[in-house]
């Protein structure tokens, strides 16, 4: 999958961002937490690459460090909602009786726009990284449940599942060894998209002031603080914004790439199209 350039670039970007944010303390030229009243709202320069904020802190460092919370929230939410969604989806898809119970609850949760649901939950629980993770997991796992359930319904009717039942294999084993491995690809793809969506959601919640505590730098918090300076110091908003866009774009491209890699038809189509194109060229010349 990584052999294709379109997939390699977002992958490399995400890895670089991850490594950079983890090791930020060691290599950042200017510490992002040092305030300097003489350097307030300075434009980007060779010293402060992304400029400075209203306390005179270095914005480049802040943007890099802020990626920690975004990636942490994104990854944890993606992981938790995938695990939860897979379990509920497997149960709902496999056991007819549980299906109607689980799916009605899921339908009820899906009736709320996910951001609104997360907003209400964070408002109720209070803003902190843990609570954001809980709220976002809660609003995203129904999506996974739906995807998993529909895949299970499909795979369940294939004869090898019945054949396994015929040879007396127990239900948990059938679920774990015969059904789950055969539906992994849509789960992984959906998980990547959840990753991207929860980074966006975390930024939105922080921007709205119900997210992570303002003392912790996150892209959403930075955007929120920068609002009033947008005409005075546009770089304050632009750089965190660009990072959000790039990260989400990279994750979505990665998800697309994964989907193509898992879907034999998509690959075949592309190759077939290329072949057709070549033939046309040959005939034209």
């Amino acid at each position: 999958m990584l052999s294709r350039k379109r997939n390699l670039i977002p992958f490399v970007f995400l890895i670089l961002l991850f490594v950079a944010t983890i090791t930020a303390e060691w290599w950042l030229p200017v510490s992002p937490s040092v305030m300097d009243s003489g350097l307030r709202l300075m434009a980007p320069s060779s010293e402060n690459w992304f400029g400075t904020d209203h306390f005179g802190r270095d914005l480049f460092g802040q943007t890099i460090v802020a990626a920690r919370v975004s990636l942490l929230v994104g990854f944890t939410v993606a992981l938790l909602s995938t695990v939860l969604g897979t379990i509920t989806g497997l149960l709902a898809g496999y056991y007819k009786r549980l299906d109607s119970i689980i799916m009605r609850i899921i339908d009820g949760m899906l009736a709320f726009p996910s951001l609104l649901l997360a907003l209400a939950l964070v408002a109720a629980l209070g803003g902190s990284v843990t609570n954001i993770i809980i709220a976002l997991t809660f609003s995203f796992w129904p999506v996974i449940t739906r995807v998993v359930r529909s895949s299970v319904l499909q795979v369940k009717t294939i004869q090898y599942v019945e054949a396994a039942k015929t040879s007396g294999v127990k239900d948990p084993v059938i679920l774990a060894r015969y059904i789950l491995p055969n539906i992994l690809s849509p789960i992984i793809v959906q998980g990547t998209f959840i990753f991207a969506r929860s980074i966006l959601a975390e930024a939105a919640l922080s921007f709205l002031g119900v997210g992570v505590e303002p003392s912790i730098p996150t892209w959403g918090n930075m955007l929120q603080e920068s609002q009033i300076y947008i005409t005075l110091a546009p770089w304050f908003s632009i750089f965190p914004g660009i990072f959000i866009v790039m990260t989400v774009l990279a994750l979505n491209l990665l998800g697309d790439g994964l989907r193509d890699a898992f879907d034999p038809y998509a690959k075949g189509k592309k190759k077939a199209r290329k072949r057709l194109f070549k033939q046309k060229k040959q005939y034209a010349s």
């Binding site: 004869q159 090898y160 054949a163 015929t166 040879s167 007396g168 015969y178 055969n182």
Partner: peptide, 24 residues
């Protein structure tokens, strides 16, 4: 029943192409 299935009474299916789990 599970003790009987596969152990005492076994079954061979119609379509060998879809009766084996492709990932195992």
């Amino acid at each position: 029943l599970r003790k009987i299935r596969g152990n005492e009474i076994a079954m061979v299916y119609q379509d060998p192409m879809s009766s084996l789990n492709p990932v195992l």
